[in-house]
């Protein structure tokens, strides 16, 4: 067997994951359009993007973290907790009587809630990072535990109930520019672009890949591995805060478990997007395509009037297909 000949051949067959994801997305769109032409309407497509904006923002943070070899499965609980805190502040603000001595607080309650949410996001990210680094345990286990803690705190604060915004905070989630483009999509695009630049064109991004690819080699090369890891966890927390603001603004109420499902949905999207669970591999475009594919499949099933409970099954199949593809192309490139 001539290895050189084989390598050339393999390169010819090499298929990029981004291309494959794009083709799959296109195929799903075509099928959905054939079954129900309403799918391809611009309003529906905008709708899909709006629906995935929260997932996309969370996935960018967790994706960068996963590239550096760490995982965070508490993100959904973080978002839920921040949603509760934020909604609580806004609701209390709304309950102040205009005649009260502290009536001036009414107009400040929303900016205050936004600032607090970002502060809490930063603290939660830093806390998660700190526990992972200090405990030296695997971040999967640590964030499993912390997720439970965050959920517990959210339940304590909300006493199991819900907080309602009564339409007082709709800009982020519901407002549309020129009555067409939702603000949340702009945030999503912005976050994806920043992630892309960070990962591809900054030294910090390169350090994330190096730490995920070989932590020891990165350390010996002079990279401050714990500081970089810490920063990645904090980034996750800050993006979660943004996601919480958009989500609660759109939904209008906050429950202790509102966003819990995002932990695994984000992970699913990232893995579909080709980020290796062991770290060191992946890119922003593919992560976005992974998020988009998952969003489109969900929407297409509804539009095609298929039982929406099939969504889980489809997503499972997509994940397995994607990782199998990544594994195969990996093997080929090593031949």
């Amino acid at each position: 067997m001539k290895p050189s000949a084989k390598r050339v051949e393999a390169r010819g067959r090499e298929l990029n994951l981004s291309v494959l994801l794009s083709i799959t997305i296109l195929a799903v769109c075509i099928v959905a359009t054939v079954v129900n032409p309403r799918f391809i309407r611009i309003t529906n497509l905008v709708n899909i993007l709006q629906q995935i904006s929260v997932l996309g923002i969370i996935a960018c943070g967790v994706g960068m973290l996963l590239i550096s070899g760490q995982i965070d499965i508490s993100v959904g609980n973080q978002v839920s907790l921040m949603g509760i805190i934020m909604a609580l502040i806004i609701q209390r603000g709304g309950e102040i009587s205009p005649d009260a001595a502290h009536a001036w607080m009414i107009q400040w309650s929303i900016p205050f809630a936004v600032v607090v949410t970002f502060a809490v996001g930063t603290v939660l990210g830093a806390l998660t990072g700190l526990v992972v680094i200090k405990s030296r345990a695997h971040s999967f286990i640590v964030t499993l535990a912390l997720g439970s803690v965050y959920r517990g705190i959210a339940l304590l604060i909300s006493r199991g109930g819900s907080f309602t915004l009564y339409g007082r905070f709709e800009t982020l989630g519901r407002t549309r520019i020129a009555n067409f483009l939702p603000v949340s999509i702009i945030f999503l695009v912005f976050v994806v672009l920043v992630t892309l630049v960070l990962l591809k064109y900054t030294r910090y991004g390169r350090f994330l890949y190096s730490i995920g690819g070989n932590r020891k080699a990165a350390y010996v090369s002079g990279i401050k591995t714990t500081a970089v890891t810490m920063r990645a966890f904090i980034t996750v927390g800050v993006l979660n805060a943004l996601a919480a603001l958009i989500l609660i603004s759109r939904v209008g109420t906050a429950l202790a478990g509102t966003a819990d499902a995002y932990s695994l949905d984000a992970l699913a999207a990232i893995v579909v997007g080709g980020v290796a669970i062991t770290g060191g591999k992946g890119n922003a475009l593919s992560i976005f395509l992974g998020v988009l594919l998952i969003g489109i499949v969900g929407n297409a099933l509804v539009v095609m009037n298929v039982n929406p409970h099939l969504r889980g099954i489809f997503i499972g199949v997509i994940i397995i297909g994607s990782v199998t593809f990544s594994g195969l192309s990996e093997q080929r490139s090593r031949m």
């Binding site: 890949y209 190096s210 690819g213 080699a217 350390y219």
Partner: peptide
């Protein structure tokens, strides 16, 4: 083990 990031 500690010199190279092999997958890069």
């Amino acid at each position: 083990d500690s010199g190279l990031v092999l997958i890069q």
